[in-house]
Amino acid sequence: MLLSVVIPVHNEADNVLPLLAEIRTALAETGDYEVIFVDDCSDDGTAGRLALERGIAASGSGAAVRVLRHASRSGQSTAVWTGVRAARGVWIATLDGDGQNDPADIPNLLNRAFADGGPELVGGLRRKRRDVWSKRAATKIANGLRQKVLSDGCIDTGCGIKVFRRDAFLALPFFGAMHRFLPALFQIHGYRVDYVEVNHRPRRRGVSKYDNLGRAVIGIVDLLGVLWLKRRTRLPAAIIEDGIEQAH
């Protein structure tokens, strides 16, 4: 299978089915793909709506829809990790479950990844944030701090829409909140990274699950951890066996 679309969700009952319909429209020409929703212990009916849609898809209408559910709240990074581990696709596309990422951007990210010499990760850069002022300001500060510390070239690491190789992701060390540091982690482990501008939309249904203060405190700790990984990771310039340089 070429592609698995992984969507972590928590209490997004009103968003999951409209988002799925948009994904099907966006990927109509993509070929064989699947959509994996990872329900992070929702209590608002999200699982029920997804189960109904999964049954419709299983009857032969549309792409395969899979629903994985955490028995306890585990966080967005763990939900992404769960979905990627279960995925059948060589490539993974991730989207936030709140509907603010535009599935119509996925083909553009895939085209960049499939180009000659293409990278193992293509991240979205939101052209114009459609969030409240406080959230935009907090993200700008966080991106600036992260850039000074990690120098990963990503000016919008919080953008949820990304395309990357499944095997490369699974080779990375896992930790909570790793989804916010994927460009840096890919680079640290020798993978190529590129970016494509994407659309961003206001949240139309449901409420945000994050507060700025809590994210800032945890984010600083995680940032220091990624900096430690960067300093301690040493990859060989080349691996040679029987006089032949091996890909790595």
Results as ranks from 00 to 15, higher is better:
Ala58Cys: 10
Asp116Pro: 14
Ser77Pro: 04
Leu121Gly: 03
Gly123Trp: 01
Ser77Cys: 01
Arg129Trp: 09
Ser72Met: 08
Gly97Ser: 09
Lys128Arg: 15
Leu95Asp: 11
Val90Ala: 10
Lys128Cys: 06
Lys148Phe: 09
Thr78Gly: 03
Gly99Arg: 05
Gly89Ala: 00
Gly62Thr: 04
Ile106Ser: 04
Val65Phe: 05
Ser151Val: 05
Val65Glu: 06
Arg112Phe: 02
Arg54His: 11
Arg112Trp: 02
Asn111Phe: 12
Asp43Ser: 12
Trp81Tyr: 15
Leu52Met: 08
Ala87Phe: 05
Lys140Tyr: 03
Asp98Pro: 14
Gly124Phe: 07
Arg126Gln: 08
Thr82Ser: 13
Arg126Asn: 08
Arg85Thr: 12
Gly118Arg: 05
Ile92Thr: 03
Ile106Gln: 01
Gly83Tyr: 02
Lys128Ala: 12
Asp131Asn: 08
Asp44His: 11
Ala63Arg: 11
Leu110Met: 10
Val67Trp: 11
Arg85Gln: 12
Gly45Pro: 06
Phe114Thr: 05
Arg126Val: 06
Gln147Lys: 02
Val149Met: 00
Arg130Asp: 09
Arg112Cys: 06
Arg54Lys: 12
Val132Asn: 11
Gly60Val: 14
Ala113Lys: 06
Ser134Cys: 06
Ala58Gly: 10
Pro119Ala: 05
Ser72Asn: 09
Ser74Met: 09
Ala51Asn: 01
Ser61Trp: 12
Val132Gly: 07
Leu50Ala: 08
Lys128Tyr: 05
Leu121Lys: 01
Gly62Pro: 06
Gly97Tyr: 02
Gln76Gly: 13
Leu52Asp: 09
Lys128Ser: 15
Arg129Ala: 08
Leu125Ser: 13
Ala142Tyr: 08
Ala47Leu: 15
Ala138Gly: 12
Ser72Pro: 02
Ala113Gly: 06
Ala57Phe: 03
Ala115Thr: 07
Val149Thr: 04
Val90Asp: 09
Thr78Tyr: 08
Gly117Asp: 02
Arg130Met: 13
Gly55His: 13
Asp96Arg: 08
Leu68Thr: 02
Ala93Asn: 04
Leu121Thr: 02
Gln76Ala: 13
Ser59Arg: 15
Leu145Tyr: 05
Asn108His: 11
Ala71Asp: 15
Leu50Gln: 11
Lys128Gln: 13
Leu110Gln: 07
Gly124Gln: 05
Gly55Asn: 14
His70Arg: 06
Arg127Cys: 04
Asp96Phe: 10
Leu68Ile: 06
Lys148Arg: 14
Cys41Asp: 07
Gly97Asn: 03
Thr46Trp: 14
Gly83Met: 10
Ala71Trp: 12
Ala142Lys: 04
Gly62Val: 09
Arg146His: 04
Trp81Asp: 15
Thr78Ala: 15
Ser59Thr: 15
Arg54Ile: 10
Gly62His: 04
Ala58Arg: 15
Ile141Leu: 12
Glu120Tyr: 03
Leu125Val: 14
Gln76Lys: 14
Ile56Trp: 15
Asp40Trp: 08
Leu52Arg: 09
Ser151Gln: 12
Gly99Cys: 03
Asn101Leu: 03
Gln147Cys: 00
Ile106Cys: 06
Leu145Glu: 01
Leu125Tyr: 13
Asp40Phe: 09
Arg54Pro: 07
Lys135Tyr: 13
Val149Ser: 00
